[in-house]
Each structure stands twice: as structure tokens, then as C-alpha cells.
Nucleic acid binder design. Structure first.
Lengths: 190, 190
DNA sequence: GTCTATAAAGCGATAGAC
DNA sequence: GTCTATCGCTTTATAGAC
């Protein structure tokens, strides 16, 4: 007899979307209940720490996804170019051309930054570091790799902001394509 | 006999900081009262529409500041390079090296995007358009000007996100300096 | 114009039945 | 594991004194 919700991890995707759509403060337990199909009792059974624990779990799940799909390939791909290509493809798909916000970026900008500071910092630091490493392996100088890594990760976050503000997914795709092109030119220029 | 608060406009700066620090949902009337030094009665006297009207007024004030200090110089400066230089200087100062968030960008990412969609869209659209115009006047091709305008405005927003996430103001200043450098190279290359 | 008091609703969180 | 009922608090907003 299959249960709809077998374990805590099953509700994390819906939980994440709810936080993305409404923000941490805006995602009330009523909205979270509607999004997950669970009553407050069930939610507090899975997350005794309440909303804060829900957000922490969502951040950890997002972090795990990026670690697996983006950061690790950047660090470990046979060819650094392949890891970088994968980063752009995964990113474009994950953020749905800017229609889906980056919850970690939202938390960084928002009022809850201090509450989840370490998770936010670690996520972006590891992204920058992994890209830095890949660019170095691709032949960039240490300074060049570091600067470009920072610019690219920042550029992706800015692309989400601008695409949402102008309500135009092509803005996101266009910026990402040009960032990608810029990296390729850098690598061939060195 | 001087009053501390003579008119509505006098509380907008404190109101803006309160929204920046706590977000729209997070800025409760209690916090707003503390930030402005006004009781609820006075606040509703100045803003009969409540929090939504306060946020609208703050957005309008921010919009006016950027229109005056950034967009208009970009459009009207004798030399486009001077307008662009002024944009970077005003932006660096206004966002305090990324320690101060862009409220319009926050609203774009956050749950209140739809509520203030038109103000958010107009702010970013006019920024991009003004920079587009300046780059065109500086000698860039229409395509080149458009693309760079989008990339620069997005890049600035991303720099704020990343600087806040990594809690490192130098990230913001570094990204802005490289964006600025990139524009100068583009103009001399054409 | 500024205040306090208060209304009505919604909030996160808990308790306890099943 | 899931639910409903409820607690205690905070919220936005209003009313009315001064």
C-alpha cells in the first residue's frame, strides 16, 4: 500500500518551489501545506524545527544537487571544457531560463541572509572555487581564472534578476550565451 | 517651531532602508515605526494605503534618484563616456560596495514581484535603454550596444548578490571595475 | 499631525485523537 | 503518519482622543 509521502525527502521539491515563489517569510504554513499536500501535523512530524528546518533542508537539497550536477563535474571532468559546458547546460535548465529564481541567491539578498549565512556562503564559494579550478586547468592564469569565476557566477545571478524584472526569459538565455562565449574566447586567447 | 517630520518625503529614506534590511514582508509596521520614529497613526496619515503605498512611494523615490543621477546623465551627457563613468561612480556609492542591496532587484526576485511589476520593469528597462543609448553614441553598433547594456545592468545586480552571499564588499568593487574595463575596451576596439 | 487602544485576521507552533 | 483543534502571539489596519 503505497503512501504518497514516504519520507521527508519526498516533500522537498514542493517545499523548495513554495519558498521560491513566496520567499521565506511569505511561505506561510498554510501555503506550505497546500503546496505539499500535508497538514501542519505531518509537516511538524517531518520537520520538528518548523519553517527554519524546512528551509535548511531545502537549501541542503539544492546544495546537493549543484554539488553533484555542477560543482563536481567542474572539478573532476576529464576535460575542463566539458565540465564548463555542463555547468551552463545544467544552469540554463535548472533556472528555467530565469523563470525560476535561485533560492540561495534570494536568501542572500533577503532579510534571512544572516539566518542561513553559512549555507549561502558555502554554496557560492564552492561554485566559484570549482569554476576557478576548471578555468585554471583549461589554461587560464590564477588571477584570470579567479576573476572570471567570480564574474561568471555573479553574472548568472544577475541574469536571473534582470530576466525576472523585465519578464523576458530570453534575457537570461542571452546573457548566459554571451558569458559562455566570453569564456571560450578567453581560453583560446591564452 | 520645526517639526521632525514635515512631510511624507522626509520618512522615505528611513522607510527604504527598512524595506532593504527586512524585505517587504519582513518589514512589519512595528519595525517601520522604529525606523522612522513614527507611530502607526502618523504612518497611516502619510500613507493611507498602508505598507503597499509605503513601498510604492519608496520605489518611486529610488526611481527618481536613479533617473536623475544615472539614467539622465547616460542619455544626455555631452560625452557618453562621462555619463558611463558617472553611472559606475554613482552605482558603487549607492550600493555601498554591495553592502546595501538594490530594493528594486530584491522585489524582482521576491514574492512581491507581481505586485510592483510595472515599477520594477520600468526601472530596469530605462536603465538598460539609457546605457544602450550611451554605448551607441560612443560608437558601438546597435547590436553590440544592446547586448552590453543588458550584460552590464545584469552584472551589477549579480555583483550585489554575490558580494552579499560571500560577505565580501571587494567582490562587488572588483566585478564593477572589470565590467567598466570591459566597456572601455569595447569602445576602443570598435 | 501624532498618539494609544483596539479590532479582526493570520501567523507559527503544539497537543492529542486516531 | 496524518489529522483537527487550539494556544499565544503578531500582524495590518482602524477609531478616536488630544
Amino acid at each position: 500500500m503505497p503512501r504518497i509521502v514516504a519520507e521527508r525527502a519526498d516533500v522537498l521539491p514542493a517545499l523548495g518551489e513554495c519558498f521560491r515563489e513566496h520567499g521565506f517569510e511569505g511561505a506561510s504554513l498554510a501555503l506550505i501545506g497546500a503546496a505539499t499536500g500535508l497538514g501542519k501535523g505531518s509537516l511538524y512530524h517531518f520537520f520538528p524545527g518548523g519553517k527554519a528546518e524546512m528551509a535548511t533542508a531545502v537549501l541542503a537539497e539544492i546544495d546537493g544537487w549543484f554539488e553533484r550536477e555542477v560543482f563536481a563535474p567542474l572539478r573532476e571532468s576529464e576535460s575542463p571544457a566539458a565540465g564548463i559546458a555542463r555547468m551552463f547546460e545544467a544552469t540554463e535548465a535548472y533556472f528555467r531560463s530565469g523563470r525560476r529564481v535561485c533560492l540561495v541567491g534570494c536568501f542572500a539578498l533577503g532579510e534571512v541572509r544572516d539566518r542561513f549565512a553559512e549555507a549561502v556562503r558555502s554554496y557560492f564559494q564552492r561554485w566559484v572555487d570549482a569554476l576557478d579550478l576548471a578555468l585554471g586547468r583549461a589554461g587560464a592564469s590564477p588571477d584570470e581564472a579567479r576573476r572570471h569565476a567570480v564574474d561568471v557566477v555573479g553574472g548568472i545571478q544577475g541574469a536571473i534578476v534582470l530576466a525576472r524584472a523585465l519578464d523576458d526569459p530570453e534575457i537570461f538565455s542571452g546573457i548566459l550565451a554571451r558569458i559562455r562565449q566570453g569564456l571560450m574566447e578567453m581560453k583560446t586567447a591564452s
